[in-house]
């Protein structure tokens, strides 16, 4: 079985986000970029499926500027077999990304697509569901456990009140939640090996990627001011009762 793992290049999760002074977006110049953490989990899951013998080939794909190739190299160092880069400058929206991935799926014919449940930049959480709709495939979002057997996938999903299990026909789409696995670190020998693995390019479908939403401005969120320190529990209770009136 062939597994496709789309990965996104985002501002590293440890970087403090700064809104640009002209309010057009957030500062990305000279900022450390990394693979979206949820996509890292998706790569790990795909690689584990290959190690178990369930998957035969793992293909990583990324849409975006030249820097995406570095992210793809990380996926290759984690154990993906080959990669596809779709060069694109500018902001891609999830619908456009899903349409691009539909073309790639048509070309590669994977039996399974695993991707992160959301990217930590736009926090949209849409791409997997939209790709599933465009392909007419089943979808298991917010997945924490995946079992594949006999042409179907049994997936445990993290829903608001607890856990839910769904069974999907393959091919299908799975979006990874935080607790699906703990991604490995790429070892130096594997990083060296990854440099020799093939990275192809696919042309971006420009019309599909034309933005549909207009970002009018990006603001700093309202900040909270630190309040006061209370010396003891009795004072705290008094404050909550008399001043804040919440108990």
């Amino acid at each position: 079985m062939k597994v496709l793992v789309p990965v996104k290049r985002v501002i590293d999760y440890n970087v403090a986000i700064r809104v640009k002074s002209d309010k057009t977006g957030v500062e990305t110049a000279n900022v450390k970029m990394s693979m979206n953490p949820f996509d890292e989990i998706a790569v790990e899951e795909a690689v584990r499926l290959k190690e178990k013998g369930t998957a035969t080939e793992v293909i990583a794909a990324s849409l975006g500027p030249a820097g995406c190739v570095e992210i793809l190299r990380t996926a290759l160092a984690m154990g993906a077999d080959r990669a596809v880069h779709v060069p694109f400058e500018g902001e891609a929206e999830p619908l456009g990304v899903a349409k691009t991935l539909r073309l790639l799926v048509g070309k590669e014919k994977p039996d399974l697509v695993i991707l992160g449940k959301q990217a930590i930049d736009g926090d949209n959480g849409q791409t997997g569901q939209m790709l599933a709709a465009l392909l007419g495939w089943g979808q298991a979002t917010f997945a924490s456990k995946v079992e594949l057997a006999g042409g179907s996938a049994k997936v445990v999903r993290e829903v608001d009140g607890g856990l839910e299990t769904v069974e999907l026909k393959c091919p299908c789409i799975i979006t990874a939640d935080l607790r699906m696995n703990e991604p490995r670190y790429a070892t130096l020998p594997n990083i060296m090996k990854a440099k020799k693995k093939p990275v192809e390019t696919m042309e971006a479908p420009a019309a599909d990627l034309a933005p549909r939403l207009k970002v009018l401005k990006v603001d700093e969120p309202p900040t909270r001011k630190a309040g006061i320190k209370v010396p003891d529990v009795a004072t705290l209770v008094e404050k909550l009762r008399v001043e804040a009136k919440v108990i």
Partner: peptide
């Protein structure tokens, strides 16, 4: 909110 609430985007839809 975007970036975990570290920025707030104002978005207009033409759909």
């Amino acid at each position: 909110p975007i970036y975990a609430g570290n920025a707030i985007a104002t978005v207009q839809s033409a759909d």
